[in-house]
Amino acid sequence: MRSNSVRFARINSAGVSHLKQKNTNKIKDMSQTITPPSNVSLQPQVTLQSGGTPNAIGEFIQETLALTKRLFIQLQRRPSTLIAGVIQPLMWLFLFGALFQNAPQGLFGNDLTYGKFLGAGVIVFTAFAGALNAGLPVMFDREFGFLNRLLVAPLVSRYSIVAASAIYIIALSFIQTAAIVTASALLGTGLPNLLGLGMIALIILLLVVGVTALSLGLSFALPGHIELIAVIFVTNLPLLFASTALAPLSFMPQWLQIVATLNPLSYAIEPIRYLYTHNNWTLGSVVMQAPWGAVTFGGSLLVLLGFTTVALTAIQPLLRRRFA
């Protein structure tokens, strides 16, 4: 019995040794098979632009366009937002124009009807209201957690989030402006020439960029959408009535004239109104008589440019802290 056990142990030991040697030979053969040639590198290849740096500008544009497309997809799924944004200013134009259609001729200027007077105010106030709501999508992204996903994503620049929202609001404002200009022309208020239409687009662009910047800053500073909506409601109508959208400066008391000339909306309304009432204009044309002096067309553009610059500069520290 003991000799048989010793014999079986020797056989098992020899078999195990044979299997180990066989497996070792297979591993060597496999390593020789997958060994790459000496001139082939297994390191991942990264394609860089000239100078050895990635095309950061191109990637920033790609990110911005992708985020902008997301906003337009949301608009496509909920078109009622755009429809309401177009119908509401048209109702303002029709109803207010009808309300004052029996006003004495010349009350708002020589041969100027109230419908023609009101058109510029409706254009500017519609663009302002849309830009003031620009922070709501960002605020909802914050509350639903989508913004946190964007902030941890490998973006080239997180400012693409802000740029996408600005592009989206600017596009909506231009659509609304085109609808109001068309409706005003059908109502008989006339139509500026091509250069005048271009100046209207420039004025709307400056105003929308500045107000959008402030709205986006509030969306990052305020704790929730309830507070942001409250700020929008408190700001909207007072700025409308404290401007020249519904009445000229000569109708206002002295203190309200001062407030209206401090309101950026007045510096957008009066140049557009001047374009509707004057075929020939220059940057030196006087568009508004402020309590402290005359305001020219070029001066209004400089005020709007300064307002936009201040708004963009003011939100930079806040965005840097939030994006950090």
Rank of each mutant, 00 (worst) to 15 (best):
V122Q: 03
V122R: 01
V122N: 01
V122C: 03
I123P: 13
I123Y: 12
I123W: 12
I123F: 13
I123G: 13
V124D: 02
V124N: 01
V124M: 03
T126K: 01
T126C: 02
T126P: 00
T126D: 04
A127I: 12
A127P: 05
A127Y: 05
F128Q: 03
F128R: 04
G130M: 07
G130A: 08
A131F: 03
A131N: 05
A131R: 04
A131G: 06
L132R: 09
L132Y: 07
L132Q: 14
N133P: 05
N133C: 10
A134I: 09
A134S: 15
A134W: 06
A134N: 13
G135D: 10
G135H: 11
G135L: 08
P137S: 00
P137K: 00
V138K: 02
V138M: 14
V138Q: 11
V138D: 05
M139W: 06
M139P: 07
F140K: 12
D141N: 01
D141C: 01
D141K: 00
D141Y: 00
D141P: 00
R142I: 04
R142C: 02
E143S: 11
E143L: 11
E143P: 08
F144K: 05
F144D: 12
F144I: 05
G145F: 08
G145S: 10
F146Y: 11
L147E: 11
L147Y: 11
L147P: 09
N148H: 13
N148P: 03
N148I: 06
N148C: 04
N148W: 04
R149Q: 14
R149H: 13
R149N: 12
L150S: 09
L150E: 14
L150F: 09
L150C: 07
L151R: 06
L151T: 02
L151Q: 05
V152W: 05
V152S: 13
V152L: 09
V152K: 08
A153N: 01
A153M: 00
P154M: 09
P154T: 07
L155K: 01
L155F: 05
L155D: 00
V156R: 15
V156L: 12
S157C: 06
S157T: 11
S157F: 06
R158N: 10
R158Y: 08
Y159L: 06
S160P: 01
S160H: 03
S160K: 04
S160E: 02
I161F: 02
I161D: 01
I161K: 01
V162Q: 11
V162H: 08
V162N: 06
A163Y: 10
A163F: 11
A163E: 06
A164W: 02
A164T: 01
A164P: 04
A164I: 05
A164C: 04
S165T: 04
S165W: 00
S165P: 00
A166C: 15
I167E: 05
I167P: 02
I167S: 10
Y168K: 12
Y168L: 02
Y168V: 03
Y168D: 12
Y168A: 10
Y168T: 11
I169A: 13
I169L: 06
I169V: 15
I169K: 12
I169W: 05
I169T: 15
I170C: 12
I170F: 15
A171C: 03
A171W: 00
A171T: 08
A171E: 00
L172T: 05
S173W: 02
F174S: 08
F174H: 08
F174G: 07
F174M: 14
I175R: 09
I175A: 13
Q176T: 05
Q176L: 00
